[in-house]
Design a binder for these strands. Structure first.
Length: 300
DNA sequence: AAACTCTCCAACCGCGCGGGT
DNA sequence: GACCCGCGCGGTTGGAGAGTT
């Protein structure tokens, strides 16, 4: 079936978002909540397609987002989850409060992959790399393909059968071609290999013993760490553009303090100078907010 | 200081899925 | 069942900033 583009691109803006656009989008969503992304740009007065608005919101403007590098624990979580789920970044992100699939995907590609390779672990299979003269791990070794975690340790079988995009499906098709149908012959053996790899990862990433806890037990850090919104994007830096100072939100007084990065803390998150202002405060502490933006709190 | 290369990440693109008609 | 629409997902890209020569 033919599919129309998400929007007619004529006259619509692309590229980096400006502070003004951010303000409009934030203002609109805080006032009206998330609804029908296609209609958002029109209603919010933005020359963007709905998809662009959704991405901007979910990947950058959402108040519950953490900023900054992933902590060691988060990294370990990502590696562990990737071993189980493969490149299902949204699934992985769902286990890491305040992190987006995009962020995790980027972090994986730029940091974790390298670390794993350095350790001699194939980032695709989470198994030790074959020690032959070919060290190009981007080329998937045949034996790794046979034991790709997505094929064998997927805890959500329904996912693998239905919700895959074209490219990842292509990858899986490739694996299917290379691997015999009886590939899951020994899950226990495979699991122990995986555990070995994880052990190596853990010792590499963090010398201290960090107990693995169930993702559901993870609490979104309150206040400073969960609310920081720091960006290197020149067009969208909240602190630079003082978006919130200019916002005319209907239900709250915006903090006057400047936002700054916490260079001393380990997690490299930012904080608000003015007390410990955070989105959490907005969401959790303001009774007026509760009263006027139930739809907003519902989306967190 | 300038030129060049590398790294990182926000944003885009294209596709599949699910729901509605 | 065919089609349309909105949304979400994962892969890729472009450009800014950092690092190196």
């Amino acid at each position: 079936m033919g599919r129309q583009p998400c929007c007619d691109k004529v006259g619509l803006k692309k590229g980096p978002w400006t502070a003004e656009e951010d303000k409009k989008l934030i203002n609109f969503i805080l006032t009206h909540g998330q609804c029908c992304w296609r209609a958002v740009p029109k209603l919010a007065g933005l020359l963007r397609c709905g998809k662009s608005c959704r991405l901007r919101w979910t990947n950058y403007l959402r108040p519950d987002l953490k900023r900054g590098l992933l902590s060691e624990y988060e990294e370990k979580m990502v590696i562990d989850l990737h071993a189980q789920l493969g490149n299902r970044w949204s699934k992985i992100a769902s286990h890491l409060p305040g992190r987006t699939d995009n962020e995790i995907k980027n972090h994986w590609n730029t940091h974790i992959k390298k670390k794993l390779k350095k350790m001699g672990i194939d980032p695709l299979t989470h198994k030790p790399l074959v020690t032959n003269n070919d060290n190009t791990t981007d080329q998937q070794p045949p034996q790794a393909a046979q034991t790709h975690p997505q094929e064998s340790t997927d805890p959500e079988p329904t996912l693998s059968s239905s919700t895959n995009d074209a490219s990842s499906q292509t990858d899986r098709n490739k694996v299917d071609l290379e691997s015999p149908p009886t590939m899951t012959e020994s899950k226990e053996e495979e699991r122990s290999t995986l555990d070995d790899a994880m052990e190596a990862i853990n010792s590499f990433l963090c010398s201290d013993d960090v107990p693995l806890i169930d993702p559901s037990e993870i609490l979104v850090p309150s206040s400073s760490s969960s609310s920081s919104s720091y960006s290197t994007s020149p067009s969208s830096s909240w602190e630079d553009n003082k978006i919130f100072e200019d916002l005319h939100l209907p239900f709250m007084d915006w903090p006057q303090g400047d936002f700054c990065e916490d260079n001393n803390s380990n997690d490299s998150f930012g904080f608000w100078k003015d007390e410990d202002f955070s989105w959490d405060m907005l969401i959790n502490a303001d009774p007026v907010l509760d009263q006027t933006s139930a739809s907003y709190t519902g989306l967190l």
